[in-house]
């Protein structure tokens, strides 16, 4: 009973909080891969998002402006990825790795430049909100008490992505591009434009996820603070079948494993071992996912 209690009041809400950046990364991955572009740079786009958000919050004192900074930075890195991959025709996987390395070097370099160490100063954090009335619901009220705006924003973004993919003509076109870009081109669709816009939106979402980590979940930037969440997002997207709803559920699975670590950690299991959990789960999930029939057929193929 005591565990069940802490499950509902602590572990589940924390799991949900931790799923936010992963789910945003997953949707970014879904957009990219449905456009036929492998985007391993999401991790780096999140990292610059996290960094820029702290810088924005630090400069203006407003975490909201900080988050905007983070989204812009992520979008710029998304633009960098799509330019190098689509316009300059670089190998997409290599480009993703370069983006991640660049983000790591650049954020460390600038953190040291601004604050003299690899950890930024503490900045104003996005204030939490409590929904009146709903917070009084027994047990589940915890989900409406003292949570970040992201807590409520995420379902909206997931729903919007779902509607976009399955209910609009732009979603239909994106689907066509991911499966057969030649066919899309011959149907008069400007494939390059769709990829540019899509990858930039993916970058903005990744930047938003990073910003959440640095100014909503925490209140500082730490070197490499994204810690693989971008890759977990990519894995969630695969596990979720390139579908925003599926990705959302899958990312919650990862996050739940992460949140367990706060409660099982310490005396019973060494921290390093609990830290391994989400990565191990990702691997197991990748192995368990059945034949990848729902994958866009032209992933990594420009034409």
């Amino acid at each position: 009973m005591q565990f069940l209690d802490s499950l509902i009041t602590h572990i589940l809400p924390l799991g949900y909080q931790l799923s936010i950046p992963i789910a945003l990364a997953a949707i970014a991955a879904t957009i990219s891969e449905r456009l036929g572009v492998i985007n391993l740079g999401i991790e780096g786009q999140m990292l610059v998002g996290a960094f820029a958000a702290v810088v924005g919050s630090h400069l203006t004192g407003s975490p909201v402006i900080g988050i905007l900074f983070g989204m812009i930075a992520g979008g710029v890195f998304g633009l960098l990825h799509v330019t190098v991959c689509v316009k300059l025709r670089s190998n997409q996987a290599v480009c993703g790795v370069a983006i991640n390395l660049l983000a790591l070097g650049l954020t460390d370099f600038l953190t040291t430049l601004i604050w003299g160490t690899k950890i930024s100063a503490l900045v104003t954090r996005l204030p939490n909100v409590t929904v009146p009335l709903l917070e009084r619901i027994p047990i589940a009220g915890v989900f409406f008490r003292n949570q970040t705006v992201f807590f409520y924003l995420l379902p909206l973004i997931v729903a919007a992505a779902y509607i976009f993919f399955y209910k609009t003509r732009w979603g239909l076109r994106v689907m066509a591009i991911g499966h057969n870009p030649q066919a899309a081109l011959s149907a008069g669709i400007n494939v390059v434009k769709y990829r540019y816009v899509g990858l930039m939106i993916a970058g903005v979402l990744a930047g938003l996820g990073g910003a959440y980590l640095s100014v909503a979940f925490n209140n500082a930037f730490v070197s490499d603070m994204v810690a693989g969440r971008g890759f977990m997002g990519i894995a969630s997207n695969i596990f979720g079948g390139w579908n925003p709803l599926g990705s959302f559920l899958a990312s919650f699975l990862f996050a739940f494993a992460q949140s367990l670590r706060y409660y099982v950690a310490g005396a019973v299991v060494p921290t390093q071992i609990t830290q391994m959990l989400p990565y191990a789960i990702t691997l197991i999930v990748l192995i368990a996912v059945k034949k990848r029939s729902r994958a866009p057929e032209a992933m990594g193929v420009l034409e």
Binding site: V84, S90, V97, A98, L101, L102, L104, G105, D108
Partner: peptide, 10 residues
């Protein structure tokens, strides 16, 4: 140096 290395890969 990490930045320069990343640029070289690009």
């Amino acid at each position: 140096i990490i930045v320069i290395q990343a640029l070289v890969i690009f």
